[in-house]
Nucleic acid binder design. Structure first.
Lengths: 272, 272
DNA sequence: ACATGAATATTGGAT
DNA sequence: ATCCAATTTTCATGT
């Protein structure tokens, strides 16, 4: 029978633990923390963690300063760094990539400095009271599959354009026009050109602007009649108004099927 | 003298550790993990962590499935959840808020289900081989101050509009016009109306579109001559071209001062 | 609750 | 390297 709470197990137990938890350290001194981090920063694949009281300074695209508080620092093997507070998805401070990370003693405290060259940025973490440090050695990751992206929606609608409108013929996906691209470009049952702007979430006035720009551009280029359709699962009230003012259209399509359905895109409830 | 690597210290050592590390568990069985998580999920302020092999399913705004792999799960006291892989700032899976979190044994494995009501979302984590679990009790956070935001830039430029152009008089900040607002609205030394669009980073064609919309709107409303200025530290080449085509202007301003300077906004290098 | 826009956005793709 | 658009964007703010 294994001990449970609190874990009284020593450093390297058997089983998976020594493969994932490479090393651990509780309530270290500044010197111990520095030695620990230096040792493991040099090992490829290590995910390091430090928990406890720390101060964080950042200077780069912006600049920030976090007073001493209890945070959780993660240093991933790809050089990314994040400092988490007790709330929210987003870290308090972070760095997507770092080119150089050093750990030194400064004024009796362990100080980690992570720098990036382009753009020139620096994060400086001063550990004022460390509760623990962990060195993890994650093994392989599993694959990730995502459904319901806009790209999937677009491909599904290109295969089944009747879900947007009966008789719609799709001529192009991601058709480049000036800057950016038209999600779906085609011709309706009466031969009129159709520009379709897709959104996987609630469409806002920005999506209407995008559609408007594309429609005007195609009208200029072809001189023909061009319809514009905004296809999304939802639309904000102001966006709906603006659409109506410009004689553009809205079509309801959902990015995800119901859980008991296999299709990626559902037909609109309002199709004739 | 404290022990260093690997930490052979038992669960509740003295000092800060028992205040931050409430409990720990290494290589637990499914039952032990369930008991641990249940016990600590009920305690306010606990930040829970589970490391090891797990599968993650998500269904909500989109849907995703991550095969078994070594990940790190964070459950914060505010109900947010994130599953981190070894790379990147962003979690593999996450949930900004959860309304209900349960932990059960299913087919011999510990399974955590976190649900959110609005929008209806669910994250299901199946622990296939747990290396460790930690219950942290973070104490107070320090304050965070940030410099270099667009709002700061705007306030600084409103106080010192000469940094944009000599003689510029600012009449309004965040002036609502249709949808959205004009960052800075004023009058130049010749009495012409001026619309200023600010960006704290590199300005793209979207910023030009925004400026264009505002300028056209103000021209319509006033019938007067209206200048449009895009103020940013950088601008993309296509955005610069589009500006020129529309007879709009670019002014270089930086969001952050040099490190040895106290001003928030630097004057343009090209000012007369 | 809804709408809006900033963000140290991050990330992936195309050129 | 640059530019662009999506993102389960998240987040703060105003209405």
């Amino acid at each position: 029978m294994r001990p449970s709470v609190p874990g009284a197990r020593a450093g390297n137990a058997g089983g998976s633990i020594q493969r994932v938890v490479a090393a651990q350290l509780f309530a270290p001194s500044a010197e111990e923390l520095v030695a620990f981090l230096r040792a493991h920063l040099g090992v490829a694949g290590r995910l390091l963690q430090v928990g406890g009281e720390m101060e964080v300074l950042y200077h780069g695209r912006a600049a920030s300063s976090a007073d001493a508080g209890d945070y959780l620092l993660l240093l991933k093997p790809d050089g990314s760094l994040q400092v988490h507070a007790a709330r929210g998805i987003k870290p308090l401070n972070w760095q997507p990539r770092t080119d150089e990370t050093t750990i030194e003693i400064d004024d009796g405290r362990a100080v980690l400095v992570a720098q990036r060259t382009s753009p020139r940025e620096i994060v400086r973490v001063t550990f004022t009271e460390t509760a623990f440090a962990l060195a993890l050695a994650p093994r392989d990751e599993g694959g990730l599959t995502l459904r319901g992206s806009e790209a999937q929606m677009r491909r599904a609608l290109a295969r089944a354009p009747d879900l947007i409108e009966l008789g719609l013929e799709v001529l192009d996906e991601e058709l480049p026009v000036g800057v950016g691209g038209i999600d779906l470009y085609g011709r309706d049952v009466h031969g009129r050109l159709v520009v379709v702007e897709l959104k996987r979430g609630k469409a806002t006035h920005e999506a209407v602007h995008q559609l408007e720009r594309y429609v005007l551009r195609i009208r200029e280029e072809t001189g023909a009649e061009v319809r514009g359709i905004l296809a999304a699962p939802e639309i904000t009230v102001p966006a709906r108004s603006r659409l109506a003012e410009r004689a553009l259209e809205y079509r309801e399509v959902t990015a995800l099927p119901d859980e008991d359905d296999d299709d990626v895109v559902q037909p609109s409830l309002f199709d004739p």
